[in-house]
Design a protein around this nucleic acid. Sequence first.
DNA 1: TCGCGGCGCTAAGAATGCGTCAAGATCGGT
DNA 2: ACCGATCTTGACGCATTCTTAGCGCCGCGA
Lengths: 226, 226
Amino acid sequence: MTRVLVVDDDPQLLRALKINLAARGYTVLTAPDGTRALHVAAHDQPDVIVLDLGLPDLDGADVITGLRGWSTTPIIVLSARTDSGDKVEALDAGADDYVTKPFGMDELLARLRAAVRRATTHSGAGEAVVHAGSLDIDLAAKQVTRDGVVVHLTPTEWGILELLARHQGKLVTQRQLLAEVWGPHYRNETNYLRVYLAQLRRKLEPDASHPRHLVTEPGMGYRFTP
Amino acid sequence: MTRVLVVDDDPQLLRALKINLAARGYTVLTAPDGTRALHVAAHDQPDVIVLDLGLPDLDGADVITGLRGWSTTPIIVLSARTDSGDKVEALDAGADDYVTKPFGMDELLARLRAAVRRATTHSGAGEAVVHAGSLDIDLAAKQVTRDGVVVHLTPTEWGILELLARHQGKLVTQRQLLAEVWGPHYRNETNYLRVYLAQLRRKLEPDASHPRHLVTEPGMGYRFTP
DNA sequence: TCGCGGCGCTAAGAATGCGTCAAGATCGGT
DNA sequence: ACCGATCTTGACGCATTCTTAGCGCCGCGA
């Protein structure tokens, strides 16, 4: 069953889309703002995302960028703005399609089918386990094992590790981590990161004081290196 | 270089598209009708196809079906018909996107970029790496390697290198660098640049006193030459 | 030939960011 | 209401990084 994540702050529209999509046999997930959209996307891995711009908390382009860092899930943007600049911005940020409101339900459904078709014909099964030394991180099961033994992580610890593992090899800025794990208001609380990274290293690294996987890039952020 | 096949029976529009696309660095192929479009597509294997509906010889949906039989090249449909039924038909036949005339050139170009990006990131490895001699600059991972070894850069050093590498070959003025890396208030502190460029050269250049990549343009700024 | 501005280079003090520890505060289940 | 787990908050020492100043070189024009 195809799973669609619909992100919109208008309960009316959300409901209308939910009914229409469910009637066509889609499984519908919803989120009312950007922060929760990112959470749901990471947690439930939908097959396609319908994203309304003009969300209350985050800028539309930021939501797209936040998703594109680790996911290639098709994104269809909805917007009331017909301005061509907005379209260009959203598409260049990584959106797959852009539909202006008011839209025909038939058209949206057709674009949805097109997006899903592309994604399924192009990509095989995405790998959900990241290996790193004696560490195995199962992103789908949300579980980490070290030398085969399960390591217990708190929700916050997992949030950080997941984000880093999804971007493995890439640098993740402190702001990115704080915004994704704690929320957009915590962007300057770099304190938290120091505490939690130390905790993660204590649990995961062979030698916590000389980290091999959870590497600090001073002044910039952190990097997970397999 | 990205190759675009434009299919349209209107010579005016064909010419306009050709000029605009060529100006953006695309290689442009053209076809005036469906039959020749299929031939060119089979023969030259373009990276993306812009297809006008309402061709003189074949029905639009038939052209799409004809292409989709053997190719997964992205197809962007142009049409004067705003009717939602046409859109649904074209998209379900296998088109990737549908743009109604009259359209903004900016929007079309953005949708073109989106289509090409999808196609390349899904199949090939979409890497954002700048190579220069024994230097590899990974802009996404924010990491530099020299002869395969990772070179550690401070945030400021990286800020400068990133800006220069993104504009590789082009001259970047001192004001530009200072404003982007330090902030708009530091536009006259050319001192900083001297210090940091020296540091970067020491870390990255084979012979720091005879720079090959980080070149000074006296009185103007700096240039990164691969 | 001389003076001048722009650049490369070095080095030291100042400022910032990080790891660490430990003690409250909060949450959630019994 | 209690208790353990988890999250927040503050403080300290240390290392790195940034800022700033000073000197010498080179090319250019007077």
